[in-house]
Amino acid sequence: MDIKLRALRAFIEVVRQGGFSPAARQVFATQSAVSKAVRQLEDELGVVLLDRGVQPARLTDAGEVVYRRALALLAEQDDLRAELDELRGLQRGVLRLGLPPIGSSQLFAPLFARFRGLYPGIEVQLVEHGSKRLEAMLSDGELDLAGLLAPTSAAFDWQSVREEPMRVLVAESVPLDVAGERVRFAALAAQPFVLFEAGFALNPMLVDAARSAGFEPHVVARTSQIDFMVELVAAGLGVGFLPRLMAEPRRRPGVRVLALAEPELVWHMALAWRRGGYLPHAARAWLELAAAAA
């Protein structure tokens, strides 16, 4: 059964207006078109809806049932349109956002305040994980957007947020072959490494750089906390690595912050989403705001 909502609306207006002619004016159609729509509705349902033998036409018992149901159906349609308009207008909705612990406070905290000010009706559901977990959640449809290091998997589309060169953190007491404030990666071969926990996208970048420089890094500690990494470096446990954005504000007595002379590693943060997947209006608004802030 394929009941047309337009025919239901024409039928409702005939009842409300007390006739076909005033109903036609209400729905901006001809009287014959309205009469035909109601007749087709009766044929589709297999019942007579209006007693046309009296003036004005009266509802039959079946017509009473259909009229009541039609009012509810069209009210639901109006509610649906209004709710979708609210979503398109960002008056309501949910943004499911995944961010990494590294760099999010500097890059994304200001965006939260702006987003909240522009779209107070949007609820932001935030999770924080390493890149591997965020990639899995994004692939499974648990997230709309995730902060990942670029280039990302071919399964995702992405928008660049920020590129920062990597810095080496080393205790001042550690002797290194340094030219000015720059160090070659090969000069770190004898130093223990303090890295982030497994699942953080920085780790493979650093391990690959070490292997390209001709050595296998000796990892003595892992942490998910930037400040704890700095303290471990200050204590002389090993060398640490941070993007410049996070390293420079953490300069302190006892810790040197050095640039990499060779190779120059770049931390490239991006916002990613499933390629070919539906991107909600709230997620698009977040991307536009992030692009404007870049």
Rank of each mutant, 00 (worst) to 15 (best):
Y119D: 07
A292K: 05
D85T: 12
G199Q: 07
R284Q: 09
E42M: 05
G240N: 04
E164P: 12
P243I: 05
A10H: 15
W267L: 10
L87V: 05
V183H: 02
G121Q: 13
G276I: 09
V14C: 07
V170Q: 11
A285C: 07
V170R: 12
V94R: 11
G236W: 15
E216V: 08
V170D: 10
V65H: 08
R96L: 01
H218C: 11
L260H: 08
E44M: 05
M137Y: 06
A23W: 02
V233L: 02
A179T: 15
R69S: 06
L232C: 06
L287S: 04
A294W: 13
G199N: 11
R81W: 14
P120H: 02
D140E: 11
A187W: 05
V183I: 07
A7H: 11
L41N: 01
Q191T: 10
A291W: 12
P263T: 02
P249D: 05
E288G: 08
D61E: 12
R39F: 07
L176C: 06
V170W: 11
A146C: 09
R69V: 07
L84F: 00
P243L: 10
V207Q: 15
R252K: 14
Q225G: 09
P204W: 10
T223A: 01
E142G: 13
A235K: 14
G93D: 07
P110Q: 03
L84T: 01
V94A: 00
P204K: 12
A272P: 15
P192S: 01
L287Q: 03
R275K: 13
E83M: 05
L126D: 10
E288K: 03
F196Q: 06
T152R: 11
Q106T: 08
R244A: 10
R256K: 07
R58C: 04
F241G: 10
L279C: 06
P120Q: 01
R184V: 01
E164V: 14
R256D: 01
Q191P: 10
V239I: 14
S35N: 08
T223V: 00
V220P: 04
R81M: 12
P110W: 00
L289M: 00
S131E: 11
D79W: 12
M269C: 15
A259I: 02
P217A: 00
S173L: 08
L80V: 10
L80F: 13
L118H: 14
R284S: 01
D144R: 01
L71R: 07
A270F: 06
Q26H: 11
A283N: 04
A294Y: 15
F193N: 04
R69K: 10
A283L: 04
T60F: 08
V220K: 02
L126C: 12
A37H: 01
E135Y: 06
L145C: 00
V219S: 02
D208A: 15
A155F: 09
L5D: 12
A234F: 02
A70D: 03
H268W: 07
D140P: 05
L206S: 04
G236K: 14
V65P: 04
V257C: 11
V161K: 12
F20T: 04
Q31I: 08
V27Q: 05
G98P: 02
W267Y: 15
A146M: 02
E123N: 04
A293P: 06
A33P: 08
S32N: 15
D43F: 05
E288N: 14
L148E: 06
L49W: 02
A113I: 14
P101F: 03
D85M: 09
M229E: 04
R274H: 14
R116V: 11
L143A: 05
A198D: 13
V124I: 13
